[in-house]
Computed example of a mutant assay.
Amino acid sequence: MYKNNVISLIARSYSKKHLKRPKIINKAVEDVGKSLSNKGFLRSHKPYDAPADAVEKVHSICSTLQISNKNEYKLNNLEEKFKFLEACFASFNHGVPNSQVHEVQTIGDVVDFYQRSVNTTVPYEAFKNMELPENLHIQYEYLRFHPDTDTKFGGKSAFPKSSTLVTGIKYREKYAGHIAKRSWP
C-alpha cells in the first residue's frame, strides 16, 4: 500500500513538472534565415546565379528520370529524391545543403530552390561597390600604430604602456606589432 502511494505521488509531481514547462514552438526555417542575415552571419556557400531556364532544366531532369514534373508531386521515396537531387546538382553545379534537404519535399520546392541566387558578398565588402554619400568615408585598409613608423605624433602613443600585438597569421606580414616598454623591472 505504501509503495503504491509513493509511486502515485512521484507520478503526479512528474506530470505537474511537465505541465509547467513552456511549449517550444518550432520556428520556420525562413525566420531563422532572416535572423541570421540580420546578424551578418555568412555561411560558407559558393556564389550561385540562378539561370533563366531553371524551370525547364528541372522539368527535363524529371522527364529523364521518369518523374512527374508537376509542382505538387511529392518526393516521398528517398532513393528517388536522392537521384533527382543528384541529377539537379550535376546539371546546375549547385546542390541543396544538408540543412535544407528535409525542406525540399516537392518538385515545386526544388524549382524554387534553383531559382534563388546565392550572394556571398559580406555587407562590409558591398560598400566598396556602392556610391556612398559625400559625408561618409570608409577606410578599408586601416592603420595600426607603431612608434617607428608613426610620423604624426613623433612615435608617441596615447597609451604608452599598451602593446599592439598582431596575433592573426594572415596579418603578421602586413602589420608590425609593438611591445611597449615597461617602467617596472
Results as ranks from 00 to 15, higher is better:
157 S>R: 02
51 P>F: 00
110 V>M: 05
20 K>T: 11
77 N>D: 15
81 K>T: 03
74 K>Q: 14
37 S>Q: 11
24 I>D: 06
57 K>V: 09
160 P>S: 02
98 N>S: 12
132 L>D: 00
69 N>P: 00
84 F>R: 01
98 N>F: 08
113 F>C: 01
114 Y>R: 01
6 V>S: 14
136 L>A: 05
42 L>W: 01
31 D>H: 06
14 Y>D: 13
110 V>Q: 03
108 G>I: 04
94 H>C: 08
46 K>I: 00
106 T>G: 08
97 P>Y: 14
6 V>P: 04
10 I>D: 14
125 E>Y: 01
170 K>Q: 12
34 K>T: 08
10 I>F: 15
133 P>C: 03
4 N>Q: 15
142 Y>I: 03
71 N>D: 13
108 G>E: 06
124 Y>H: 04
68 S>R: 12
173 E>A: 07
147 P>H: 02
21 R>N: 10
148 D>R: 03
101 V>D: 05
69 N>G: 10
3 K>Y: 15
102 H>N: 09
18 H>P: 06
150 D>A: 03
105 Q>A: 10
172 R>S: 10
54 A>R: 00
3 K>G: 12
8 S>A: 13
62 C>V: 02
3 K>E: 15
119 N>E: 11
80 E>H: 13
83 K>R: 15
181 K>S: 11
25 I>P: 02
29 V>K: 06
101 V>Y: 00
135 N>W: 02
176 A>T: 10
86 E>C: 14
120 T>C: 09
180 A>F: 07
95 G>L: 04
89 F>L: 11
172 R>C: 05
45 H>P: 01
120 T>K: 05
137 H>W: 09
160 P>F: 03
123 P>E: 03
121 T>L: 05
52 A>Y: 01
166 V>P: 02
19 L>R: 12
113 F>W: 08
171 Y>S: 10
112 D>R: 10
21 R>Q: 14
49 D>Q: 03
24 I>V: 13
14 Y>W: 09
79 E>M: 12
70 K>Q: 14
30 E>G: 08
12 R>F: 11
163 S>L: 03
115 Q>V: 05
142 Y>N: 04
135 N>Q: 08
102 H>C: 08
177 G>N: 08
35 S>T: 09
133 P>L: 05
97 P>D: 12
26 N>R: 14
54 A>F: 04
175 Y>F: 15
107 I>G: 01
90 A>W: 13
96 V>I: 14
21 R>T: 12
108 G>V: 02
23 K>M: 09
40 G>T: 02
182 R>G: 06
162 S>Q: 07
5 N>A: 15
